[in-house]
Design a protein around this nucleic acid. Structure first.
Length: 649
RNA sequence: GCCGGCAUAGCUCAGGGGUAGAGCAACCGCCUUGUAAGCGGUAGGUCCUCGGUUCGAUUCCGAGUGCCGGCUCCA
């Protein structure tokens, strides 16, 4: 009764096979060589295990160890080899579950009496290599729930029994076996363990069972695996590149900022770092002015009464710093919004006044749990390019889109191409009714939909006072960070009893929109440094040009050149060291300074400077007046490259 | 907050129960320099902090602090 299905191969040819045929059988039909080399398959782009019966027609592909897509099959298989190795070394270790994320890493969790040491990892890795050499074949077994339960009960693995309960009724339960090792697993896996060409265990860590803090603690081992040693080497090179771009290393190295143990997770910006910091804020100030946001300055420390009103006391207290004086309790602000509500309250507002837009670069302090802070991306002291818009219901969509538009503009300026947009919906800990949340969530989605922007919905990811749109970009090692955010808030206006007089004379409640574009200035700077590997855009660079006198004889002229450019508002330094030109160039290059201005006899005579870019390009001598014009123009336009002589004016 | 690792000169790191070393940087001198490291010299340390073991601790043990990799949580 088997019906036929049609598989379309990558070369466009079609193959008709009985439904229930496995990819491996298809491979055998195509050729013995391919059958031997196959690691996995895909139907319409979705990975399929070689032993899974095919149930429908579609675009069919086979992967060998050479295909980049084979990595997922290989790493998934490496998880089982890891669990096998640990179990062989310590039979009492209970294996929970493995996982491979979308990176090149895989992991497996164990119930184990102690933490795994680096020596343990070395022993496990050696055992894994032994297992690879055994070259067993992966087998796929479909079992009933009862059979699966019986098997894991016999193995004494209650973690697996717990996992089994999480599999929805009706779903096919599969086990995979290689050698004598058996695991509850959805697959897909490679054909044979020997197809895992290269493995490395990376680190161990304690984790919670099923990721829940209330559950027991397990021991996790991370590793990576590839089809070939060459791919592992490429992975190492990528890691090295990421390390070279790490802002935590580049920032102090470029003398931008430092940290002190006396103020954990709170950056100290040095003059160069502050120049960049203020450059970012200056850019946002321009945009704020252009879009009708009025900047305000508000206090740092406010009576806790305010935080009771705002709901922060109930929902955000564990992240706040407190202080007491004259028997009065104060809190250091973690957000600006309540202070903006106080400003709103100072006058009677009419619908004609709305929208009112307050921007604020106030310093914020949040007590972040130790262990979660990192570099500039997660700190305890920071500023946001914050703003709050008070508007009518009718104005919400336009105001949301205004903010989204500016955000996308900013990311374009900095050439962030991979921006992911997410909509965060109601979290467990929240204020307000479900109806209010309903309206707010739908409003955000509609604003994105009508503008054709793609986004993912992150359930439970909203702020406690309202849903949010967030904008995320990746750092050098692929970690995603939230930068900009637009949040709707129906709660604070209510808590602060904000109102405006409507056209009909009635009192109405405004809607509040929170928005940040860079997000936190600190985090943005950290990500930007990784994005640019420290070579900041010309307009932001702390030192925009360095004058390199060829010898001591040209120091005076070098000083003149720097002074001339400095008067035009550019940040220029002179290298007064007693070194050869090559050395000076190297120093400027390592400092990632956009332009090097070499001055020697020829330049002195011509009233010029020979320009070399940090990209290594030699632009030759350019007369000072012209150079000044072109550099000033490049900075003003926030352009990536020096405009040609004719373009300036 | 939890699990693990690390902490030696400004930076990168070596060393080791008997009060410490390299390279780079800094400083001084020679050279007067043409597009990524010229040569020589000098100076620089509470070996994170506190406690314990020891005749003696920077080294071994414990606690604390900070940082790093994860978990949980977030801009």
């Amino acid at each position: 009764m088997s019906s036929e299905i049609v598989l379309t191969l990558p070369d466009g040819s079609e193959r008709s096979v009985p439904a229930g045929t496995t990819p491996l059988e298809v491979a055998r039909a195509i050729g013995p060589r391919l059958a031997a080399d196959a690691v996995g398959a895909a139907l319409d782009g979705a990975p399929v295990d070689l032993r899974t019966p095919l149930g429908r027609s579609g675009a069919f592909r086979l992967y060998t160890a050479k295909s980049p897509e084979a990595g997922d099959f290989i790493r998934h298989s490496a998880e089982h080899v890891l669990a096998d190795a640990v179990t062989r070394l310590w039979p009492e270790a209970l294996y929970d579950a493995g996982r491979k994320d979308h990176s090149e890493k895989f992991q497996y969790d164990f119930r184990f009496a102690r933490a795994f040491t680096p020596e343990d990892l070395a022993a496990i890795e050696a055992k894994m290599r032994e297992i690879l050499a055994e070259d067993s074949t992966f087998e796929r077994l479909e079992v009933t729930r009862d059979e699966a339960e019986r098997i894991f009960r016999e193995l004494g693995n209650d973690l697996k029994l717990e996992r089994l309960k999480d599999i929805p009724a009706g779903e096919t339960i599969t086990l995979y076996r290689h050698g004598r090792f058996l695991d509850l697993c959805r697959g897909p896996h490679a054909q044979r363990v020997s197809q895992i060409g290269a493995i490395r265990l990376l680190e161990a860590s304690g984790v919670y069972f099923k990721g829940d803090e209330r559950n027991e603690r397990l021991q996790r081992i991370y590793g990576t695996a590839f089809g070939s040693a060459r791919e592992l080497e490429a992975y190492d090179r990528a890691l090295e590149e990421a390390r070279a771009r790490d802002h935590r290393r580049l920032g102090p190295e470029l003398d931008l900022w430092s940290f002190s143990p006396l103020a954990p997770a709170s950056p100290f910006f040095h003059p160069k770092g502050a120049a960049v910091y203020n450059g970012l804020i200056g850019y946002v100030r321009e945009l704020n002015a252009r879009h009708g946001y009025g900047e305000v300055v508000t206090p740092q420390i406010l009576d806790v009464e305010l935080w009771h009103t705002s709901g922060h006391w109930a929902n955000y207290r564990e992240n706040m710093f407190f202080t007491e004086l004259d028997e009065r309790q104060y809190a250091v602000k973690p957000m600006n919004c309540p202070t903006h509500c106080l400003i709103y309250q100072t006058g009677k507002r009419s619908y004609r006044d709305l929208p009112i837009r307050y921007a604020d670069f106030g310093r914020l302090h949040r007590y972040e749990r130790s262990g979660v802070t990192s570099g500039l991306t997660r700190v305890r002291s920071f500023a946001q390019d914050d703003a709050h818009v008070f508007c009518t219901d009718d104005q919400v969509e336009a105001e949301v889109m205004r903010a989204v538009g500016i955000i996308l503009d900013i990311y374009r300026t900095f050439e962030f191409r991979d921006v992911a947009i997410g909509v965060g919906t109601r979290p467990d800990k929240r204020v307000g009714s479900d109806e209010q949340w309903e309206v707010a969530e739908a409003g955000l989605c509609r604003a994105l939909d009508t503008n054709g922007l793609a986004y993912t919905v992150n359930a439970g990811d909203g702020a406690f006072y309202g849903p949010k749109i967030d904008f995320r970009v990746s750092d050098a090692i692929g970690r995603q960070w939230q930068l900009g955010t637009v949040q709707l808030d129906y709660q604070l206006p209510q808590r602060f009893e904000l109102e405006y007089v409507a056209a009909d004379g009635s009192f109405r409640r405004p809607v509040m929109i929170h928005r940040a574009m860079l997000g936190s200035v600190e985090r943005f700077l950290g990500i930007l440094i990784e994005h640019t590997a420290g070579a900041l855009p010309f307009w932001l660079a702390p030192v925009q040009a360095k004058v390199l006198p060829l010898s001591e004889r040209f120091l005076a002229y070098g000083g003149e050149v720097a002074a001339r450019l400095g008067e035009a508002g550019l940040r220029v330094e002179v290298d007064v060291s007693n070194e050869k030109l090559g050395y000076k160039i190297r120093q400027a290059q390592l400092a990632k300074i956009p332009y090097m201005l070499v001055v020697g006899e020829k330049e002195l005579q011509a009233g010029a400077a020979a320009v070399r870019t940090r990209g290594g390009e030699d632009l030759g001598p350019i007369p000072l007046a012209e150079l000044t014009r072109r550099l000033v123009d490049q900075a003003a336009r926030r352009a990536a490259a020096l405009p040609a002589a004719g373009e300036v004016g």
